[in-house]
């Protein structure tokens, strides 16, 4: 009995030792020397792998930052300035202050504003619908309503509103990763500055057609009349291809352009309700 035990222990021990030596040698030979700072940076990133930085995932960003030894052009939209400052502190670098961004839907072609002219009956993805026709409402620029953006959102920050047929962005959950922007075949979603107190003003339309055809399909289309451009004192609004665009870097949120739009295509978000005319002027002056 003792003998058997002894033989087992010795032989197994020998096999184990040989295996350990081989393992050690292999591990030495194929050792990957990695900058330890990559792990430090990766730990600080949110780990959502959303791709908002433009790279394949959080680790890719960490590697890129460490390799570049600089934070220039690097940004983690979900993490925001805090995370970037944190990383900057850890690596002894300087972080650029980035304005927080948010996804904005630039189409208001709901079923009511742009009533369906045909019925779509195929695979419910915007990518396919876009290749097939202009859309149920007839607008070749408008939202197709199949929800590719909602599927693309990894943060549950979007849902389809069954009443309007348009996606809705939940501001609190949106981290501005830009996945929806890439998913939309018509580039309807735009990343815009979050704005002071979450206040935003934007043209909720990207239709580049002339006024007539645009208005025919949708009651709230930008018809390119240019009234907002004339109204704006800060040169924030430009008109190109029959479409007004508000530059969020120049816009002072005075919201004077909103009421002049004949089709209500300019939207204001998170502003207090408008008071009678005189006081509006007073308030904007105080801001």
């Amino acid at each position: 009995m003792n003998e058997i035990t002894l033989i087992s222990v010795v032989s197994l021990g020998a096999i184990g030792s040989v295996a350990a030596i081989i393992l050690y040698m292999v591990a030495q030979k194929f050792k990957v020397i990695e900058d330890p700072r990559i792990d430090i940076v990766a730990d600080k990133l949110p780990g959502a792998n959303c791709g908002g930085c433009g790279l394949a995932g959080c680790r890719a960003l960490a590697e890129a930052i460490v390799k570049a030894e600089s934070l220039e052009g690097m940004n983690c939209p979900p993490g925001g300035n805090e995370v970037m400052k944190d990383i900057a502190a850890a690596l002894g670098l300087e972080a650029e202050e980035q304005d927080p961004m948010i996804a904005v839907l630039r189409c208001n072609g709901s079923r009511e504003n742009s009533p369906p002219k045909v019925k779509y009956d195929s695979h419910m993805t915007c990518a396919f619908a876009h290749s097939l026709f202009a859309g149920e409402g007839g607008c070749p620029f408008g939202c197709l309503g199949c929800g590719d953006c909602v599927v693309a959102c990894a943060f549950d920050a979007m849902y389809m509103d069954p009443a309007t047929g348009l996606p809705v962005i939940i501001d609190d959950k949106c981290v501005a990763c830009g996945a929806c922007v890439k998913a939309c075949p018509r580039s309807i979603i735009e990343m815009r500055k979050k704005g002071k107190k979450d206040r935003r003003i934007f043209v909720s339309c990207i239709n580049k057609e002339k006024g007539g055809p645009a208005k025919k399909n949708c009651a709230v289309a930008c018809i390119g009349c240019g009234k907002c451009v004339k109204e704006c004192k800060f040169d924030a609004i430009t008109m190109e291809n029959n479409l007004a665009y508000i530059d969020f870097n120049k816009c002072t949120l005075c919201r004077k352009c909103v009421p002049v739009c004949p089709t209500n295509a300019i939207h204001e978000l998170n502003f207090p309700p408008r008071k009678p005319k005189v006081e509006v002027a007073a308030e904007t002056a105080s801001e």
Binding site: S122, H123, T125, A127, F128, S131
Partner: peptide
């Protein structure tokens, strides 16, 4: 199933 629809998108 929308086989061809999906394949067309993929093909593009």
């Amino acid at each position: 199933r929308p086989l061809l629809d999906q394949i067309r998108v993929g093909k593009a």
